[in-house]
C-alpha cells in the first residue's frame, strides 16, 4: 500500500540545492502530485490501522464521554448517570440492577481489624468479596489476598498466596491483605486527575468513570490493594449482585482502576462488610473509630495491635492483632 511512496524514481536530485528562498518554490508538479498521493495513501492506511478504535464510539456514549467528575455531579446529574449505567448493565450483562450513592454517615470513621491468631486462611472472605462486588468471574478476582506466612517471621518474603492444602498448617499463620484505607494514602497523592480520593468516613474510593487507567496508583500502593480492569469483567446475569453503589460494587468498566471500598454500599447503611459476614473464624472486626465503645476501639485498647509497613507513614485504618 504505502510502497507507492517509493515509486518516484529520481536517481539524483540536484534540484533541492537550488536557491529556495522564493516562497513556495516547489518542485515539479509530478513530484508534488506523487507526494500528495503518497500522503493521502498514508493517511488512509493510518485510518485503516486505527479502525479497531471504532469500538469506542460504539461502547462509550457521548454522555459517558462528557461525564464530569463525581464531585462535580449534581443530584440531578447523578440520577441521569445512574439511570444510564443501569440501562447499560441491563444491555451488556442482562441484569436488572439498582445503583445508589450511599453517603458517609456524619461522625463515623471506619476501621477494620483482623485477628491473626484466628484467621486460618480458608479464603471465604475472598469468595464473599468476589460475589458481593461483582468481580470478574474469569479470574476469580477479589480485593483480598491472603498470605500464608511462616511462624517466627513477619517477612512477607517467606509468605505465599498460592497455597492449596488444608488450613491452618501448624507452622504457618495467615495474613489477609486488602486496602488499608490509609490516612496518608500514597495512591491518592499519585493520581494525576483526582480520580481517587479519601472520603470523610475514611474510605478511599475511585470514580471508575473518571479514571484514565495510568496505573500510577497501583505502583504507589505498598499493599497490593489496587486492581486494574485489564478487560471487561464477565459475570453471568444470574450472579450479578443487583444492589450496587456508584463508588463501590457496580460492574467496573474496562481500563479503569478499582479497589476495596469497605463495601460502602452496605457499611454506610449500617451493615457489616461482606468479608466480615463470611468469615467462619470470627477473625474480622469492623466498626466506627469515633465511637469509644465500638468493637474496633476495644481491639485497639486491649489487644497487641500492629499495622502493615508502619515505617512508610501511610497511617492505615486497617489493623492486625493477636489474641
Amino acid at each position: 500500500m504505502t510502497t507507492d511512496n517509493a515509486s518516484p524514481q529520481e536517481p539524483h536530485d540536484g534540484e533541492h540545492l537550488k536557491p529556495l528562498l522564493p516562497i513556495l518554490d516547489q518542485h515539479s508538479t509530478r513530484r508534488t502530485l506523487l507526494k500528495t498521493a503518497g500522503a493521502a495513501l498514508g493517511l488512509a492506511a493510518f485510518g485503516e490501522a486505527l479502525s479497531p478504535l471504532m469500538v469506542i464510539p460504539e461502547n462509550v456514549s457521548v454522555d459517558e464521554f462528557l461525564q464530569q467528575h463525581y464531585k462535580e455531579l449534581t443530584d440531578e446529574d447523578k440520577k441521569k448517570v445512574f439511570a444510564r449505567l443501569e440501562a447499560e448493565t441491563k444491555e451488556r450483562f442482562g441484569a436488572n440492577v439498582t445503583i445508589t450513592d450511599a453517603k458517609p454517615i456524619p461522625g463515623v470513621r471506619f476501621a477494620y481489624a483482623i485477628n491473626v491468631s484466628k484467621c486460618n486462611g480458608n479464603g471465604k472472605c475472598m469468595e464473599a468479596c468476589n460475589k458481593e462486588n461483582n468481580h470478574h468471574r474469569g479470574v476469580d478476582q477479589s480485593y483480598i489476598r491472603v498470605l500464608e506466612m511462616t511462624k517466627g517471621s513477619m517477612d512477607m518474603e517467606h509468605g505465599s498466596t498460592t497455597y492449596d492444602h488444608t488450613v491452618p498448617q501448624d507452622d504457618k499463620f495467615y495474613l489477609p491483605v486488602q486496602c488499608q484505607q490509609c490516612d496518608n494514602p500514597p495512591c491518592v497523592s499519585a493520581c494525576p486527575i483526582e480520580a481517587t480520593w479519601k472520603e470523610d468516613d475514611g474510605i478511599v474510593v475511585v470514580d471508575y468513570n473518571w479514571c484514565i487507567g495510568c496505573r500510577y496508583c497501583e505502583a504507589a500502593c505498598p499493599y497490593h490493594a489496587r486492581r486494574f480492569n485489564w478487560e471487561l469483567p464477565e459475570i453471568p446475569a444470574e450472579e450479578v449482585n443487583p444492589n450496587q453503589g456508584y463508588l463501590s460494587n457496580r460492574i467496573r468498566p474496562q481500563g479503569a482502576m478499582e479497589k476495596c471500598h469497605f463495601c460502602l454500599h452496605r457499611t454506610r447503611e449500617g451493615r457489616a462488610p461482606a468479608c466480615q459476614e463470611a468469615c467462619p473464624t470470627g477473625a474480622r472486626v469492623f466498626g466506627d473509630l469515633n465511637d469509644p465503645d465500638s468493637a474496633i476501639n476495644y481491639v485497639l485498647k486491649n489487644k497487641r495491635v500492629f499495622v502493615l509497613k508502619e515505617e512508610l507513614g501511610t497511617k492505615p485504618s486497617f489493623f492486625y492483632f493477636f489474641d
Binding site: 462509550v60 494525576p192 473518571w210 479514571c211 484514565i212 495510568c214 496505573r215 486494574f228 481500563g255 479503569a256
Partner: peptide
C-alpha cells in the same frame, strides 16, 4: 504514556481547566 493508558478516550481529564489535574501533589 498515551499507549499505556487504559482509557485514552478520557485523556481530556488530564487537561488543565476542563479536566481535574491533581497538581502539585501528583508527580505525574
Amino acid at each position: 504514556v498515551l499507549v499505556d493508558l487504559g482509557r485514552p478516550d478520557r485523556f481530556w481529564h488530564l487537561l488543565p481547566v476542563i479536566g481535574r489535574i491533581n497538581w502539585p501533589v501528583s508527580m505525574l
